[in-house]
């Protein structure tokens, strides 16, 4: 059971990918299947069940894209 959940405000993301480098369970990726309103691939998490809610991704995000919840 996931301990945490992250939501991405996709259209704000600038595709910098810093969040993908700090996830302890390596579940943050860049969603290359789509482009957001700014023309970037937004960051995303597919395997949400592995999220531990540590907020590392949100901590390093320069654009406040990520909201983190913990159960």
């Amino acid at each position: 059971m996931a301990k945490g959940k992250v939501t991405f405000n996709e259209d704000i993301c600038k595709g910098c990918a810093l969040c993908t480098t700090v996830c302890p369970v390596n579940i943050v990726t860049m969603d290359t299947s789509k482009i957001n309103i700014k023309g970037f691939h937004p960051a995303a998490v597919v395997e949400m069940d592995k999220c531990i809610g540590c907020a590392n991704c949100a901590t390093i995000c320069p654009d406040y894209v990520i909201t983190v919840e913990r159960f």
Partner: peptide, 11 residues
């Protein structure tokens, strides 16, 4: 479900 990280009102 508690929000542990969200955009601050300071911005």
């Amino acid at each position: 479900m508690a929000v542990v990280f969200q955009k601050t009102k300071g911005l």
